[in-house]
Nucleic acid binder design. Structure first.
Lengths: 220, 220
DNA sequence: TAATATTTTTAGATCAATCTAAATATATAT
DNA sequence: ATATATATTTAGATTGATCTAAAAATATTA
């Protein structure tokens, strides 16, 4: 089934909201996510429901049907593969690729994505450490812990970031923190959750709780 | 100025029609080119005219203003760069890339095209031998002659094709004719314009006039 | 639980892009 | 040059995607 860009964006939004909250997505949540009005969302939900992509009952929120999940997953796959392309091949920095991938993900061609995947050597994670679903929609799972949950003395490698905003990523750039950076917890301040950490056994810095919450570490 | 995909497609159509015929594009010609109705074209021409992209007077056909030329040229640049990417990097064959590039050309990002151009090593021609305008919209000019205009004994290299349809390109594939193939005219039949030609000093084949008209040769 | 607040849907418009059918303008040919 | 054919535009609708304002349903709280 051929979907419009708008329809695809709704499916992706519903997928992400349901995934995060692990429940049905509300009209308002979708509207917020897509910066649109609740009324527009209701309209679109009716259309997506007609097309058999979502379970929608008035006032009850929505969940994706299997066809909808498939579409959403393929969009995420495409988005993340394009991000890898932009960073690895075109040498964009990880804070510059989201918007462009947001457009590229709507390009229609199975063959293109197959070949892109091969060209990039079947990457399993994107430049922000998010897993790239394979052609069947399967995500690679990896154990990871927010730095904020780690304790004094623990260490591990930065494998992902939760916040994808340019501002956050640029801040990490300024600290020279990137995927692969080894981080060990020197100590943490119970009062405000801020932490002193060591980077690659070289530099010691202090980070706030909010930053620590957005850094995903593979401990060990 | 940000344009819609539809607007961009009209500009490109007008550019191509004017270029080929070397005069203003008629409503019908545009409609034919875009497989739409003349009425739709008239509607769109009004809009493009309002935006200052074209010169439009009722019943007189249209020409592009400089802003329109700039937009159209950049679209062609993007289209052809993406075709190079698809063929050179993703190993698509030259008969498979048009439709995908047709979508990719609408991706908005100056930076992306700059980097793609560099990644591809600043190609001057696309996989069909069409010149790729540079960032300033300048096309590389190359002397080339339709094979149909060549005479017995003349020879040269295939540097481009006029017809970009899958069928034509697949036919060339079946003859093992590609860009770079050396072609020499053994003789031509005045009656129907068909020709006997030699390929890479190896194989001799007969081609019809229509095929010869679509093969562009750099003589010598 | 009754009042209030919040969320969601409906009603009614708008805009871009398209269509068909009808009207009008231009071109061609006898 | 007049009739006929062709090209183009206008009129009026339609569809998807959006909006605001108002109505209705659900949730929260005193």
């Amino acid at each position: 089934m051929k979907l419009s860009t708008a329809e695809e964006n709704y499916l992706k939004a519903i997928f992400k909201i349901s995934e995060k909250a692990n429940k049905s997505a509300s009209t308002n949540a979708i509207a917020r996510h897509l910066s649109t009005s609740a009324a527009s969302v209701t309209d679109m939900l009716k259309r997506l429901s007609e097309k058999g992509l979502i379970n929608y009952e008035k006032y009850k929120g929505v969940t994706l049907k299997s066809a909808g999940i498939k579409q959403a997953t393929q969009l995420i796959r495409k988005h993340r593969l394009w991000e890898v392309f932009l960073v690895k091949k075109l040498r964009f920095s990880w804070d510059q690729v989201h918007e462009i991938a947001e457009q590229l993900e709507h390009i229609e061609s199975e063959e293109l994505i197959m070949r892109l995947d091969a060209f990039l050597d079947y990457p399993k994670f994107d430049p922000h450490g998010d897993p790239i679903p394979n052609a069947d929609g399967k995500f690679t799972i990896r154990s990871q812990t927010p730095l904020s949950d780690m304790h004094k003395g623990q260490q591990g490698m930065l494998v992902g970031v939760k916040d994808h905003t340019t501002e956050f990523l640029k801040y990490l750039n300024s600290l020279n923190v990137k995927l692969g950076t080894m981080i060990s917890v020197i100590d943490s301040v119970p009062y405000d959750g801020s932490m002193n950490v060591n980077l690659d056994s070289k530099k010691e810095i202090m980070i706030t709780s909010i930053v620590a919450q957005n850094l995903l570490i593979r401990i060990g």
